[in-house]
Amino acid sequence: MKLVRFTEQGRTRIGKVEGDQVVDLSAIKGVSASMRQVMTDLPALRSALQGAKWPAFALADVTLEAPIHDPQKFLGIGMNYQKHADEARLAGIPIPTSQLWFNKQVSCITGPFAEVVKPDISDKMDYEIELGVVIGTRCRHVSARDAASVIGGYLIVNDVSSRDWLQKSPTFTLGKSFDTYGPIGPWLTTADEIGDPLALEMRLSINGELRQHSLTGDMIYDIYAQIEYLSSVMTLEPGDILATGTPSGIGAPSGTFLKPGDVMRLEIEGLGQIENRVVAESAHQA
């Protein structure tokens, strides 16, 4: 299923995408306005969600929101594709010798087609396409062998980053967490629809120019190793989002940073596409 949060006539609710339509699921018993809660209850709800056919709206007539707006955790891993690690080294970023995790504060989350605000206090705003893994089962101490069983679904993450603020904050959190720096979507594709999440093609373009192009299989630490590593430290909860790393092609090595008016388009095979226009902070506040 392709589960969404959508707004129609001023009301936001949970639905699923089928073809060019969104089926409203909000009337199903047990479905709340929170995708995190839906993920928690998905085993019990799945049959009813799959069987729902009505009411339905044209996809073009609704606004798609961030599929999960209230995760307890939004975590990202740094330098997890070898070519990206190499280009980061050229940009003066130290390369970790183990998994390097950071927080993206959940307040940065925004919709799949929402504007991204360039802060006045950052001159080095960059883009990063990433496969987002959504946890489906509360878990701790999960082995890599069993990690697939706790994945609820996948989505696209645009891990927008301010490189100058990454240097100011060694944990990366500040440079990753400006408001609107976490576009996600366009929907949450449940894990059963993705045959091999380590064989998906990823593409990011700026104003129509291809900048990033890779396969998810090029990760240094795959998604199962990531879950094993994280769950050895903390309990992972349904709805938690893991941004699993970006391939080469970011703007930092060449000094080609985002500016107002730029349009980022991100596509991952089987997951759809999202698109975000950059706007100046002053224009956004006006």
Rank of each mutant, 00 (worst) to 15 (best):
R11Y: 04
T12K: 06
R13T: 05
D20A: 14
D20R: 10
S26V: 00
S26D: 08
I28G: 03
I28S: 02
V31W: 01
V31T: 03
V31A: 01
S34A: 09
R36Y: 00
Q37V: 09
P43W: 01
A44D: 13
S47C: 04
Q50R: 15
A52F: 02
V62Y: 12
T63I: 11
L64A: 05
P67I: 05
H69F: 12
F74L: 15
R89L: 02
L90N: 12
L90C: 11
Q99T: 11
T110I: 04
A114H: 11
A114R: 08
P119E: 02
K124P: 01
K124G: 02
E130L: 03
L131C: 00
V134R: 00
V142S: 00
G152M: 05
G153S: 10
N158H: 13
D159P: 04
D159H: 07
W165T: 03
T171V: 09
T173S: 08
L174R: 04
Y181I: 04
A191H: 01
G195Q: 14
S205P: 02
E209I: 15
Y224P: 02
Y224K: 00
E228L: 02
M234V: 14
G239R: 05
L242F: 13
A243Q: 02
T244D: 12
F257E: 02
V263M: 15
E269Q: 14
I274C: 11
E275W: 07
E275S: 15
E275M: 09
V278I: 15
E281V: 06
